[in-house]
Design a protein around this nucleic acid. Structure first.
Lengths: 207, 207
DNA sequence: AACATAACATGCAGGGCTGCATTTTGTATG
DNA sequence: CATACAAAATGCAGCCCTGCATGTTATGTT
């Protein structure tokens, strides 16, 4: 049973609760399916099967497959953010910790599912529109979280640019991960190297 | 009419020539289709249409859709390499030039098609096996080309790691490109920033 | 306890994709 | 010029996916 970010209404009508749970189950199943089967094989049937529902049950919630995927985009974004903020906690952290936590949120299965949606959105105008909104919000929230976690370091000129750079590099390494196969040791080596570079990039204003 | 790396036999039998051309046309059409329509919509019908052939004509060349995609993987890899070596020429170049040329080979439509195949291979064991081979060869050849282009700089300890780091970062930025939409100016800004970091990473052994 | 409503399951029609068998066209050889 | 062969086009059967209309079960109300 996957973890859901959506908190159903407390004691309000049991029906409403069931609805919320079912909806969340569908979204979770979609994310799982994306991560394990990929976008092309993320079909309404498989989603329903994973969610433990029949195929027709998703119509009241999502009119079409694309609607479901678009909703899963936002759902996944919430999960990414929640995961990050949960790891980073409330207080201040070091730059190294921040980088490590960011990297933790670029691991399978969440990153894989996100990647599938990014790539799918590239050639699907509707999904792309939704993605632009979602990504903008996520980036903003992420930046705010980092801002409070790192303190005044984020005030130095050019920090925002450096942060985007760090994000991009991480995504690249996560992408590389799928093209070097299941070689965990090699990936760890690569990450150790990149980690040093990224920490330096965030700390040093500029040489 | 797309450019093909495959050079058909010179004056040998016209049939053989036609075969080679048709095969190349199919592969080129597949790559185009991947870049514009995405993996899911890269269907045998669309490929045939783009190649100016009928659907059944691809059977003598590729037994199945997956065979065609696997072949397109290698085809695309050759194109990527050819593009890079053509740009970098024979003589030596500066680190900045090398970085710029590498970045040029991470642009649409070639990068988009490659990305589609990478992501598809993640959830398709057969494609993944093929991809591991292809990527290993590409990386090796790419490294050799850079080695001759940059001269003795590549001999310093840790250069290989730095080079992989540069590749990963670029892929990340190219990936970011599809999630910030068609905002060319913003991307240019991001690239300017990353470019400086990457050049520094390649030049400076370590701080 | 009977009714009304919401949630879910079942079944069907339409369409697209794949893979192949078959036919037609074009090319080489005696 | 006629025949043998290769290449490409056409047509078909099977499968899966989607969207929806209809039926069934569970829940809440009076």
């Amino acid at each position: 049973m996957p973890n859901s970010v959506v908190t159903p209404p407390p004691g309000a009508g049991i029906n409403a609760r069931r609805s919320a749970e079912t909806r969340a189950a569908l979204l979770d199943a979609t994310v799982e399916c994306l991560a394990t089967d990929g976008y092309a094989k993320t079909t309404t049937g498989r989603i329903a099967e994973r969610a433990g529902l029949s195929r027709g049950a998703q119509l009241p919630y999502f009119r079409s497959r694309r609607d479901l995927l678009a909703a899963a985009m936002a759902h996944l974004a919430e999960q990414r953010l929640a995961d990050f903020t949960a790891r980073i906690g409330g207080g201040e952290v070091s730059v190294a910790d921040c980088v490590d936590i960011l990297w933790a949120s670029h691991q399978p299965p969440m990153f894989d599912a996100t990647l599938e949606l990014w790539v799918a959105a590239r050639t699907d105008p509707e999904l792309q529109g939704r993605m632009l909104e979602v990504e903008r919000e996520v980036t903003t929230s992420l930046f705010q979280a980092v801002d409070t976690a790192l303190g005044d370091l984020t005030q130095r000129p050019g920090f925002a640019d450096d942060f985007v750079y760090v994000l991009a590099s991480m995504r690249g390494l996560a992408l590389l991960q799928i093209s070097i196969g299941p070689n965990a040791r090699l990936l760890e080596t690569r990450w150790r190297h990149m980690r040093g570079e990224l920490i330096r990039a965030l700390e040093a204003p500029q040489v």
